[in-house]
Write a protein that binds this DNA or RNA. Structure first.
Lengths: 260, 260
DNA sequence: CCGTAACGCGTATGTCATACGCAGAAGGGG
DNA sequence: CCCCTTCTGCGTATGACATACGCGTTACGG
């Protein structure tokens, strides 16, 4: 229906075109004074310094020494800038050492998950960018690919590999969001992380009714809430469960019929 | 430090105060012409009809037959309205039939996850509300409590129960976000869900380089992408993995030493 | 060497959340 | 019984913000 052949083939969503560097740089007009890279880098800097909310077209333009509207010569909309920021800040994956050393899929997938988590923690504002559908940018694909490769020796069906990758990836993101929220609370009030969790525990103790919430009450009394200072605890715990679950699937698949 | 005793005890974050119905209705001024409930209900209606983005203070006020600013007599800020909307739309959990019938923790937790998912699917806009830290509203606590109760017979430590609940809950949410994004894409362009996934597959085929992305290429060739029409597939798959992982943990805990 | 396409950007528009203050309503204390 | 305090609804104003539009300018291709 709306088929419009330009240079390559079909109608890529402008932002993808930009992310893949497929923008046709015309040889006609004046020299561009800016570049996509500079703009995206400036936006990333702003986000890192003052959070995603501080990333406005005006602010980025100012940071880059141009006027607000000139940015629209490089970026079709703010959402596109978001996509590019994500792509730049996340970056491509490092090679997995577990794959090179010939370790099993479990080590490889764990390393993959940790690497992903590290990137998110380095740029917590990434988590504030609303997810816009399935991955289609270069780095997203590269990470996806690496996740599949981590499962290469597992004997899983192709579709299952992707499902597992998706599952783990979503887990990493969820856990990181939790951390980001905690970090936000820490910044919002000017206190220490411990104080935030302590304050949360106090709030809970006030709101929880032992009759209506016996389980949570038991949790509060058990003191399990106060001790674990380890910020990696929930991540490690969840990942371990997830990997166990994948292992169970692999065992099931292994022993069963080799499906076409 | 900033301790200010008002009516009850400490300084609850205004929105929580409202969610728990602890607003001190003063007996002094004129009769309020509106009510929190009416406002929240109107906001929920708007979100259900036109999406969360359509929920502006002006629009809600109009819907309720009042002026924009009058809403601020009931709600301290828009974020508070969000919290209340979430609370209202999510609602309290139904009793778990698996618990009443004496089924095991696995059935109970699966039922719990499905119930949660159903609520999210009924109000996809819920997923667009940024998560604001750990749960502290009545319904959030009730769901949390029910999750813990589902794990009652498991023999897990209190802390582990909560970690599992968090893990499953985050999974449900992640998966729902995926569905919401797909639904959004379906609405944005005017096409059918199948057409959206087909278009995605076409885009991938164009972008994926078989040399650089052998795993994804294999996935695309395997045709695994085209067949599974079942919208519940990823949910069921992920939940099964997760439950298997929890089962492994329970077996480990069961057989091992009963830690303090 | 000129037409044309791309550039930088000023201006304008429309949408929001929300601060501020006023005028009217309604209890409660004298 | 009345007035004063307190709360109500709400008009107005402010300040961000994204972004459409169009103008003057630049520089390459014919």
């Amino acid at each position: 229906m709306a088929e419009k052949s330009s240079s390559g083939g079909g109608d890529l969503p402008a932002s993808l075109e930009a992310a893949w560097g497929l923008r046709a740089r015309p040889a006609k007009g004046p020299k561009p004074g800016l570049s996509l890279e500079r703009i995206v880098a400036a936006a990333v800097d702003v986000a890192s310094a003052d959070g995603l909310a501080a990333v406005s077209m005006g602010r980025v333009a100012q940071e880059v020494g141009a006027s607000t509207m000139s940015l629209y010569r490089y970026v079709s909309a703010k959402d596109e800038l978001y996509v590019l920021m994500q792509e730049a800040a996340f970056g491509p994956p490092e090679p997995l050492s577990a794959l090179e050393s010939g370790a099993g899929w479990r080590e490889a997938l764990a390393e993959w998950a940790s690497a992903q988590r590290d990137r998110l923690h380095a740029h917590l504002w990434l988590l504030r960018i609303p997810v816009g559908g399935p991955p289609a940018t270069p780095n997203s694909l590269a990470w996806w690919e690496q996740g599949i490769q981590a499962l290469e020796g597992s004997g899983l069906a192709e579709g299952d590999k992707t499902s597992v990758v998706l599952l783990v990836s979503n887990f990493v993101r969820s856990e990181a969001v939790l951390m980001a929220d905690l970090a936000a609370a820490v910044v919002a009030r000017g206190v220490s992380p411990d104080e935030v969790t302590a304050s949360y525990e106090r709030t809970l103790k006030r709101l929880v009714d032992p009759a209506r919430h016996p389980g949570i009450s038991r949790l509060l009394e058990s003191g399990a809430m106060s001790e674990p200072d380890d910020p990696d605890y929930e991540f490690t715990f969840g990942l371990e469960r997830l990997l166990d679950g994948v292992e169970a699937l692999i065992r099931k698949t292994d022993g069963g019929v080799k499906s076409a």
